[in-house]
Design a protein around this nucleic acid. Sequence first.
DNA 1: GTTCATTTAGAACCTCGCTTCTAGTTGGGA
DNA 2: TCCCAACTAGAAGCGAGGTTCTAAATGAAC
Lengths: 196, 196
Amino acid sequence: MARPQKFTTDQILDAALTAVQQHGPAATMADVARAVGAPMGSMYYRFPSREHLFIALWLRSIRHFHAGLLEALTIEDPRTALVAAARHIPRFCRAHPDVALALTLYRQTRLVQSAPAELVEEVRTINEPVLEAMARACTRRFGRATPKRLDLVRTACQASPYGLVRPYVGGPVPLWLDAVVTVSTEAILALGDPGA
Amino acid sequence: MARPQKFTTDQILDAALTAVQQHGPAATMADVARAVGAPMGSMYYRFPSREHLFIALWLRSIRHFHAGLLEALTIEDPRTALVAAARHIPRFCRAHPDVALALTLYRQTRLVQSAPAELVEEVRTINEPVLEAMARACTRRFGRATPKRLDLVRTACQASPYGLVRPYVGGPVPLWLDAVVTVSTEAILALGDPGA
DNA sequence: GTTCATTTAGAACCTCGCTTCTAGTTGGGA
DNA sequence: TCCCAACTAGAAGCGAGGTTCTAAATGAAC
């Protein structure tokens, strides 16, 4: 009945990725339209505003990024799992520099307050699968997941590795960084051991 | 001969700091003018453009931040010095959350390419004192400062600690983070030891 | 007291980019 | 073949914010 769409939503988001790579976080709707080869107005049939489009890109990038993180956390041995999760971060940024750059478009804490109403819920809960998987690994590793230990695990496996690759995000991520991430994560996790 | 200025340049930059705290990196010239209590036009007698003003704020914030870093690096014992430099980062962010937030306004690598001509030189060389101090500490610690080891020292004493506090920048920085920074920095530095 | 460069002061202007509007196109169903 | 909803297409509108303009005020030097 309806005319088929010339561009899929994913194609538009891919174009947004390109636009961000070329023009940084200030990429315009016109940049996205040019990258996908469609006119400005067409964008607004899929996304009610620029903000919707770029938040959608951010959410898709987060989910892409989380996939490997969640897979690493399914590893049985909790030490191996947590270090694998940490190492996934530089590897992902190396393999998908454009997606990694899109991750820096927003920060969840700010976005929860400023996002359009219909996206707030998704923004608010985007991290939950990973947090739950980390909590499970934390329990297996330390016997019990106190709030303090959970903070430590998140710091060891997310904040630290991400902080280490951040200077390189968007460009080539050196290989020696993986060893740095590993020893840092292990050292931080050791702080949670009962005897520490 | 001339009428004395009602607002010092530092007062304007302080106001810009406030504006960034309140409105984020998209703070406008009007926000700054309101914060200092001056009209829009007056801003342009000190700074030829918005970009000049905000880059000046960034540069001043970096220098403020570097002061403590350089002081830590004067410590004789290189191990102590490097860890002290690392620990300075969360402490600074805790003591000066607004300045820390201003540090996130730009990244040097991008800025070197996009800054107005008359600021490029200062942007390009802003890190040199710290880099030199780190190179000296690196030499004292490892006997010789190979490029690889220098990268490692920068990663251990800058990238890692900064990455660890980044999620908290702008708000309260938890005290337990200092211990995390310490063990992470020590673990990364250990990778540079001859036997490692 | 007069002079005058400098700064304040705020309104006007102008550019840029998001958004909306109107027209034209497409292609499946009746 | 005709219809019509969904989409493409690009131009026009509109607002926000950076920048500029003009006038007035200030206070040190003479």
